[in-house]
Computed example of a mutant assay.
Amino acid sequence: MQTFRLLCLAGSTRTDSYNYALAGTMAKQLSLTGINATLISLEDYPLPLFNADDETEKGLPDNAVRLSKLLAQHDGVFIASPEYNASLTPLLKNTLDWISRVPSDGRDPFNTPVFAIGSASPGKLGGMRSLAHLRQILVALGAIVIPEQISIGSAGNAFDDKGDLTGDREAAFLNNCASKLVQTAQRLKSLA
């Protein structure tokens, strides 16, 4: 069986972030199925606020280049996006903007991996509005984003002490999203 590498991250660095918990739960689910899954925190890749003048004067930040290469090295990426004012976080948007500026030297960070998205929120909508914007941005960057996604409402009660989802419905959505991400990544890798 081929080895598939999947990357999981969250658009939040907040302490006890529900979305980092969701990204961790996805990484755990993928690992349980034998997939090589890696969970990263954007806190480990700080970036300045995107400014084209700074890019011209100082060049690309090292962390933008590192993240671009990291995405391109994986067959699939899961992004958990919090919802801020009915959209994605400034942190996530800024990160995607910087990565999009890195010239591709082989595998493209948006065209190579397959993307899946999810959100966890204390509200009842579960961050659904952020996912529409995130999907739109990723597609504009040339990414393939699977239709299956996961949205966790009332996130304060959604995870147990081990980081697993407490609700059967939410766990089923996570399993479906993980399965479709792996299937799509496998199919596209076999065509390459």
Rank of each mutant, 00 (worst) to 15 (best):
T33V: 02
A80D: 02
V102I: 04
G142M: 02
L191N: 03
D54C: 08
L174E: 03
L131N: 07
A52N: 12
M26I: 12
R187D: 12
F50H: 13
I146Q: 00
N19K: 02
E43T: 04
V145W: 01
L138R: 02
D44Q: 11
G153L: 06
V114N: 01
G156I: 02
V182T: 05
H74D: 11
P48S: 13
A116F: 03
L67F: 09
N36F: 06
L67S: 03
V114L: 08
N157V: 03
L6F: 15
T184V: 14
N176Y: 11
F110H: 07
L134N: 05
P113F: 07
I146Y: 02
I146P: 01
L39C: 08
K69W: 00
K189H: 05
N36Y: 05
P90G: 14
D160M: 02
L49A: 14
P46Y: 06
S121M: 02
A155N: 10
R107N: 15
V145S: 01
L92Y: 11
A116C: 09
G127C: 11
P82F: 04
K28M: 14
R129H: 14
P122E: 04
I99T: 06
F4N: 13
S87G: 11
G142Y: 05
L125H: 14
A52C: 03
L96P: 01
D161L: 05
L188F: 08
A155S: 15
T166F: 01
P113T: 10
M128E: 15
L125P: 00
G59M: 12
T3H: 13
Q2C: 03
N36L: 07
D108V: 04
L22W: 05
R14F: 11
R101H: 14
D44T: 07
Q183T: 10
G76Q: 06
F115A: 09
H133D: 15
I146T: 00
P147E: 13
I150W: 10
N175T: 02
N63T: 10
L70K: 05
A140M: 10
N36A: 15
F50I: 09
K162C: 09
A185S: 13
L88E: 05
A37S: 14
A21M: 13
R135A: 06
C177G: 02
R187S: 13
R129F: 08
T112G: 08
R187A: 14
H133L: 12
Q186R: 10
L131G: 11
L6K: 12
V145E: 03
P61A: 09
N176R: 10
